[in-house]
Design a binder for these strands. Structure first.
Lengths: 138, 138
DNA sequence: GACTTTAGTTGGACAAAGTCCAGTATAGCT
DNA sequence: AGCTATACTGGACTTTGTCCAACTAAAGTC
Protein backbone atom coordinates (compact mmCIF):
# COMPACT_ATOMS: atom_id res chain seq x y z
CA UNK A 1 0.00 0.00 0.00
CA UNK A 2 2.87 2.37 0.62
CA UNK A 3 3.45 2.05 -3.10
CA UNK A 4 0.10 3.79 -3.43
CA UNK A 5 1.41 6.62 -1.30
CA UNK A 6 4.55 6.73 -3.44
CA UNK A 7 2.53 6.87 -6.59
CA UNK A 8 0.45 9.69 -5.23
CA UNK A 9 3.44 11.65 -4.10
CA UNK A 10 4.81 11.25 -7.59
CA UNK A 11 1.69 12.94 -8.84
CA UNK A 12 2.23 15.98 -6.67
CA UNK A 13 0.21 14.92 -3.67
CA UNK A 14 1.24 16.53 -0.45
CA UNK A 15 1.58 13.77 2.10
CA UNK A 16 -0.46 14.44 5.21
CA UNK A 17 -1.37 12.34 8.20
CA UNK A 18 -5.01 12.43 7.13
CA UNK A 19 -4.38 11.11 3.67
CA UNK A 20 -2.10 8.43 4.96
CA UNK A 21 -4.81 7.27 7.33
CA UNK A 22 -7.47 7.15 4.64
CA UNK A 23 -5.16 5.15 2.42
CA UNK A 24 -4.43 2.74 5.27
CA UNK A 25 -8.12 2.23 5.94
CA UNK A 26 -8.78 1.39 2.31
CA UNK A 27 -5.85 -0.98 2.24
CA UNK A 28 -7.34 -3.01 5.08
CA UNK A 29 -9.18 -6.20 4.30
CA UNK A 30 -12.62 -4.69 4.62
CA UNK A 31 -13.38 -3.70 1.10
CA UNK A 32 -16.43 -1.82 -0.19
CA UNK A 33 -16.78 0.63 2.66
CA UNK A 34 -19.10 3.61 2.61
CA UNK A 35 -17.63 7.05 3.11
CA UNK A 36 -18.93 7.11 6.64
CA UNK A 37 -17.38 3.76 7.44
CA UNK A 38 -14.09 5.00 6.11
CA UNK A 39 -14.46 8.04 8.31
CA UNK A 40 -15.25 5.94 11.38
CA UNK A 41 -12.16 3.80 10.89
CA UNK A 42 -10.03 6.81 10.14
CA UNK A 43 -11.16 8.47 13.36
CA UNK A 44 -10.01 5.40 15.26
CA UNK A 45 -6.49 6.08 14.06
CA UNK A 46 -6.54 9.85 13.97
CA UNK A 47 -9.30 11.26 16.16
CA UNK A 48 -9.33 14.81 14.82
CA UNK A 49 -9.86 13.91 11.18
CA UNK A 50 -12.96 15.57 9.77
CA UNK A 51 -15.67 14.20 7.58
CA UNK A 52 -14.97 16.82 4.94
CA UNK A 53 -11.40 15.64 4.59
CA UNK A 54 -12.41 12.04 4.20
CA UNK A 55 -14.88 12.98 1.48
CA UNK A 56 -12.28 15.15 -0.23
CA UNK A 57 -9.64 12.46 -0.10
CA UNK A 58 -11.95 9.76 -1.38
CA UNK A 59 -13.01 12.04 -4.20
CA UNK A 60 -9.40 12.67 -5.14
CA UNK A 61 -8.54 9.00 -5.07
CA UNK A 62 -11.45 8.32 -7.38
CA UNK A 63 -10.40 11.08 -9.76
CA UNK A 64 -6.88 9.71 -9.83
CA UNK A 65 -8.27 6.29 -10.62
CA UNK A 66 -6.81 4.67 -7.50
CA UNK A 67 -10.18 3.78 -6.04
CA UNK A 68 -13.52 2.92 -7.61
CA UNK A 69 -16.84 4.32 -6.64
CA UNK A 70 -19.48 1.64 -6.58
CA UNK A 71 -23.13 2.50 -6.47
CA UNK A 72 -25.11 -0.56 -5.77
CA UNK A 73 -28.58 0.71 -5.05
CA UNK A 74 -28.09 0.84 -1.33
CA UNK A 75 -28.14 4.37 -0.08
CA UNK A 76 -24.50 5.32 0.14
CA UNK A 77 -21.74 5.05 -2.42
CA UNK A 78 -19.06 2.54 -1.58
CA UNK A 79 -15.37 2.76 -2.27
CA UNK A 80 -13.47 -0.12 -3.77
CA UNK A 81 -9.69 0.04 -3.46
CA UNK A 82 -9.31 -2.76 -5.99
CA UNK A 83 -9.21 -0.33 -8.89
CA UNK A 84 -6.36 -1.90 -10.80
CA UNK A 85 -7.84 -5.32 -11.34
CA UNK A 86 -10.93 -4.87 -13.53
CA UNK A 87 -13.88 -6.65 -12.02
CA UNK A 88 -17.61 -6.46 -11.46
CA UNK A 89 -19.91 -6.93 -8.51
CA UNK A 90 -22.36 -9.41 -7.11
CA UNK A 91 -24.73 -7.91 -4.57
CA UNK A 92 -27.12 -9.52 -2.14
CA UNK A 93 -30.48 -7.83 -2.55
CA UNK A 94 -31.30 -8.52 1.06
CA UNK A 95 -28.29 -7.76 3.22
CA UNK A 96 -26.27 -5.72 0.74
CA UNK A 97 -23.19 -7.94 0.89
CA UNK A 98 -20.87 -7.36 -2.06
CA UNK A 99 -18.40 -9.70 -3.72
CA UNK A 100 -16.01 -8.96 -6.54
CA UNK A 101 -16.55 -11.22 -9.53
CA UNK A 102 -14.80 -11.78 -12.84
CA UNK A 103 -17.29 -12.76 -15.52
CA UNK A 104 -16.07 -14.22 -18.77
CA UNK A 105 -16.89 -12.33 -21.94
CA UNK A 106 -16.49 -8.69 -22.78
CA UNK A 107 -19.64 -6.63 -22.35
CA UNK A 108 -17.95 -3.70 -24.06
CA UNK A 109 -17.93 -5.68 -27.30
CA UNK A 110 -21.61 -6.47 -26.86
CA UNK A 111 -22.77 -2.93 -27.51
CA UNK A 112 -23.03 -2.48 -31.27
CA UNK A 113 -22.42 0.90 -32.83
CA UNK A 114 -26.07 1.17 -33.67
CA UNK A 115 -26.80 1.16 -29.95
CA UNK A 116 -24.30 3.86 -29.01
CA UNK A 117 -26.25 6.91 -30.12
CA UNK A 118 -23.07 8.84 -30.85
CA UNK A 119 -21.73 8.39 -27.33
CA UNK A 120 -18.07 7.75 -26.73
CA UNK A 121 -18.34 4.75 -24.45
CA UNK A 122 -15.44 4.41 -22.04
CA UNK A 123 -16.55 2.07 -19.33
CA UNK A 124 -18.95 -0.72 -18.39
CA UNK A 125 -20.15 -1.68 -14.99
CA UNK A 126 -21.94 -4.97 -14.48
CA UNK A 127 -23.89 -5.64 -11.31
CA UNK A 128 -25.32 -9.05 -10.60
CA UNK A 129 -28.06 -9.20 -8.00
CA UNK A 130 -29.31 -12.11 -6.02
CA UNK A 131 -29.46 -13.68 -2.60
CA UNK A 132 -26.39 -14.67 -0.66
CA UNK A 133 -26.14 -18.07 1.04
CA UNK A 134 -26.66 -16.50 4.45
CA UNK A 135 -29.88 -14.72 3.56
CA UNK A 136 -31.12 -17.75 1.65
CA UNK A 137 -30.95 -19.78 4.84
CA UNK A 138 -33.02 -17.35 6.90
CA UNK B 1 -51.20 2.37 -19.70
CA UNK B 2 -54.64 1.81 -18.30
CA UNK B 3 -53.77 -1.85 -18.68
CA UNK B 4 -51.21 -1.17 -15.98
CA UNK B 5 -53.97 0.14 -13.75
CA UNK B 6 -56.05 -2.93 -14.58
CA UNK B 7 -53.19 -5.22 -13.71
CA UNK B 8 -52.65 -3.46 -10.42
CA UNK B 9 -56.29 -3.55 -9.52
CA UNK B 10 -56.20 -7.26 -10.21
CA UNK B 11 -53.51 -7.52 -7.60
CA UNK B 12 -55.64 -5.89 -4.96
CA UNK B 13 -54.53 -2.33 -5.41
CA UNK B 14 -57.00 0.24 -4.27
CA UNK B 15 -57.38 2.73 -7.09
CA UNK B 16 -56.86 6.28 -5.91
CA UNK B 17 -56.47 9.57 -7.71
CA UNK B 18 -52.88 9.78 -6.47
CA UNK B 19 -51.85 6.41 -7.80
CA UNK B 20 -53.52 7.07 -11.11
CA UNK B 21 -51.58 10.29 -11.46
CA UNK B 22 -48.25 8.68 -10.65
CA UNK B 23 -48.93 5.96 -13.20
CA UNK B 24 -49.84 8.57 -15.80
CA UNK B 25 -46.66 10.48 -15.20
CA UNK B 26 -44.56 7.38 -15.67
CA UNK B 27 -46.44 6.49 -18.81
CA UNK B 28 -45.49 9.83 -20.37
CA UNK B 29 -42.63 9.99 -22.80
CA UNK B 30 -40.11 11.34 -20.33
CA UNK B 31 -38.49 8.22 -19.03
CA UNK B 32 -35.92 7.90 -16.26
CA UNK B 33 -37.37 10.48 -13.92
CA UNK B 34 -36.18 10.98 -10.38
CA UNK B 35 -38.70 10.67 -7.58
CA UNK B 36 -38.77 14.44 -7.25
CA UNK B 37 -39.40 14.90 -10.92
CA UNK B 38 -42.25 12.45 -10.72
CA UNK B 39 -43.59 14.41 -7.80
CA UNK B 40 -43.30 17.71 -9.66
CA UNK B 41 -45.24 16.36 -12.63
CA UNK B 42 -47.79 14.72 -10.40
CA UNK B 43 -48.39 18.00 -8.59
CA UNK B 44 -49.15 19.61 -11.92
CA UNK B 45 -52.08 17.24 -12.32
CA UNK B 46 -53.12 16.91 -8.70
CA UNK B 47 -51.85 19.79 -6.61
CA UNK B 48 -52.37 18.30 -3.19
CA UNK B 49 -50.40 15.13 -3.74
CA UNK B 50 -47.65 14.73 -1.17
CA UNK B 51 -44.08 13.69 -1.56
CA UNK B 52 -44.54 10.77 0.80
CA UNK B 53 -47.27 9.33 -1.39
CA UNK B 54 -45.15 9.55 -4.50
CA UNK B 55 -42.31 7.77 -2.74
CA UNK B 56 -44.68 5.11 -1.43
CA UNK B 57 -46.29 4.55 -4.79
CA UNK B 58 -43.00 4.33 -6.62
CA UNK B 59 -41.75 1.86 -4.04
CA UNK B 60 -44.84 -0.27 -4.50
CA UNK B 61 -44.53 -0.22 -8.26
CA UNK B 62 -40.93 -1.35 -7.96
CA UNK B 63 -41.89 -4.15 -5.59
CA UNK B 64 -44.58 -5.28 -7.98
CA UNK B 65 -42.05 -5.31 -10.79
CA UNK B 66 -43.90 -2.73 -12.87
CA UNK B 67 -41.16 -0.16 -12.71
CA UNK B 68 -37.39 -0.43 -12.45
CA UNK B 69 -35.21 1.48 -10.09
CA UNK B 70 -32.07 2.64 -11.83
CA UNK B 71 -29.13 3.92 -9.85
CA UNK B 72 -26.69 5.54 -12.14
CA UNK B 73 -24.26 7.24 -9.84
CA UNK B 74 -26.00 10.56 -9.90
CA UNK B 75 -27.48 11.38 -6.58
CA UNK B 76 -31.09 10.34 -6.93
CA UNK B 77 -32.54 7.03 -8.00
CA UNK B 78 -34.42 7.11 -11.26
CA UNK B 79 -37.54 5.21 -12.18
CA UNK B 80 -37.83 3.41 -15.46
CA UNK B 81 -41.35 2.40 -16.49
CA UNK B 82 -39.98 0.17 -19.22
CA UNK B 83 -39.81 -2.82 -16.89
CA UNK B 84 -41.24 -5.41 -19.22
CA UNK B 85 -38.71 -5.07 -22.01
CA UNK B 86 -35.32 -6.12 -20.61
CA UNK B 87 -32.68 -3.54 -21.37
CA UNK B 88 -29.62 -1.81 -20.01
CA UNK B 89 -28.41 1.75 -19.78
CA UNK B 90 -25.92 4.10 -21.35
CA UNK B 91 -25.14 7.12 -19.20
CA UNK B 92 -23.32 10.33 -20.00
CA UNK B 93 -20.74 10.87 -17.27
CA UNK B 94 -21.00 14.60 -17.74
CA UNK B 95 -24.62 15.59 -18.06
CA UNK B 96 -26.22 12.40 -16.75
CA UNK B 97 -28.31 11.77 -19.85
CA UNK B 98 -29.58 8.19 -20.00
CA UNK B 99 -30.49 6.02 -22.98
CA UNK B 100 -31.88 2.54 -23.00
CA UNK B 101 -29.68 0.11 -24.89
CA UNK B 102 -29.98 -3.52 -25.94
CA UNK B 103 -26.57 -5.17 -26.01
CA UNK B 104 -26.10 -8.48 -27.74
CA UNK B 105 -24.95 -11.37 -25.61
CA UNK B 106 -26.17 -12.60 -22.28
CA UNK B 107 -24.17 -11.38 -19.31
CA UNK B 108 -26.04 -13.81 -17.08
CA UNK B 109 -24.34 -16.68 -18.87
CA UNK B 110 -20.95 -15.02 -18.41
CA UNK B 111 -20.86 -15.61 -14.67
CA UNK B 112 -19.54 -19.12 -14.10
CA UNK B 113 -20.66 -21.09 -11.08
CA UNK B 114 -17.22 -20.75 -9.57
CA UNK B 115 -17.81 -17.01 -9.43
CA UNK B 116 -21.18 -17.16 -7.73
CA UNK B 117 -20.06 -17.86 -4.18
CA UNK B 118 -23.25 -19.71 -3.40
CA UNK B 119 -25.47 -16.79 -4.34
CA UNK B 120 -28.71 -17.33 -6.17
CA UNK B 121 -28.26 -14.84 -8.96
CA UNK B 122 -31.51 -13.46 -10.30
CA UNK B 123 -30.67 -10.32 -12.19
CA UNK B 124 -27.98 -8.42 -14.05
CA UNK B 125 -27.71 -4.74 -14.60
CA UNK B 126 -25.25 -3.39 -17.13
CA UNK B 127 -24.36 0.28 -17.18
CA UNK B 128 -22.24 1.74 -19.95
CA UNK B 129 -20.64 5.09 -19.22
CA UNK B 130 -19.26 7.62 -21.62
CA UNK B 131 -19.75 11.04 -23.12
CA UNK B 132 -22.82 11.97 -25.10
CA UNK B 133 -22.52 13.81 -28.45
CA UNK B 134 -23.68 17.04 -26.86
CA UNK B 135 -21.10 17.08 -24.09
CA UNK B 136 -18.40 15.95 -26.51
CA UNK B 137 -18.97 19.10 -28.56
CA UNK B 138 -18.58 21.50 -25.62
C1' DG C 1 16.22 24.94 11.43
C1' DA C 2 13.28 29.15 10.36
C1' DC C 3 10.52 31.23 6.60
C1' DT C 4 7.34 31.24 3.01
C1' DT C 5 4.08 29.61 -0.05
C1' DT C 6 0.26 27.32 -1.07
C1' DA C 7 -2.22 23.11 -0.70
C1' DG C 8 -4.75 20.79 2.77
C1' DT C 9 -7.80 20.52 6.91
C1' DT C 10 -11.48 21.83 10.01
C1' DG C 11 -16.09 22.12 11.66
C1' DG C 12 -20.27 23.88 11.24
C1' DA C 13 -23.91 25.32 8.27
C1' DC C 14 -26.37 23.90 4.41
C1' DA C 15 -28.70 20.96 0.82
C1' DA C 16 -30.76 16.99 -1.30
C1' DA C 17 -32.95 12.59 -1.08
C1' DG C 18 -35.56 9.77 1.42
C1' DT C 19 -38.16 7.80 5.67
C1' DC C 20 -41.51 7.82 9.42
C1' DC C 21 -45.53 8.73 11.88
C1' DA C 22 -49.95 10.35 13.99
C1' DG C 23 -53.97 12.12 12.34
C1' DT C 24 -57.30 12.39 8.51
C1' DA C 25 -59.65 10.95 4.25
C1' DT C 26 -61.59 7.69 1.09
C1' DA C 27 -62.22 3.25 -2.00
C1' DG C 28 -64.68 -0.58 -2.16
C1' DC C 29 -67.62 -3.69 0.14
C1' DT C 30 -72.27 -4.69 1.99
C1' DA D 1 -75.42 5.15 3.32
C1' DG D 2 -72.24 3.29 6.55
C1' DC D 3 -68.10 0.72 7.80
C1' DT D 4 -63.46 -0.40 7.86
C1' DA D 5 -59.12 -1.25 6.16
C1' DT D 6 -56.20 0.97 3.30
C1' DA D 7 -54.20 5.10 1.60
C1' DC D 8 -52.87 10.04 1.97
C1' DT D 9 -50.99 14.17 4.23
C1' DG D 10 -47.56 17.22 5.90
C1' DG D 11 -44.14 18.00 8.77
C1' DA D 12 -40.34 16.43 11.48
C1' DC D 13 -36.39 13.72 11.10
C1' DT D 14 -32.30 11.09 9.16
C1' DT D 15 -28.72 10.14 6.06
C1' DT D 16 -25.51 11.33 2.73
C1' DG D 17 -22.96 14.61 0.87
C1' DT D 18 -21.24 19.60 -0.28
C1' DC D 19 -19.47 24.26 0.70
C1' DC D 20 -16.84 27.80 2.72
C1' DA D 21 -13.94 30.98 5.45
C1' DA D 22 -10.57 30.62 8.84
C1' DC D 23 -6.76 28.02 10.23
C1' DT D 24 -2.71 24.60 9.80
C1' DA D 25 1.13 22.41 8.13
C1' DA D 26 4.13 20.02 4.05
C1' DA D 27 7.82 20.78 1.20
C1' DG D 28 10.95 23.69 -0.90
C1' DT D 29 14.47 27.54 -0.15
C1' DC D 30 17.88 29.75 2.12
Amino acid sequence: MSDLLERLRGRGWRMTAQRRVVAEVLAGDHVHLTADEVHARAVAKLPEISRATVYNTLGELVTLGEVLEVSTDKRAKRYDPNAHRPHHHLVCAQCGAIRDVHPTGNPMADLPDSERFGFTVSDVEVTYRGTCPNCAKA
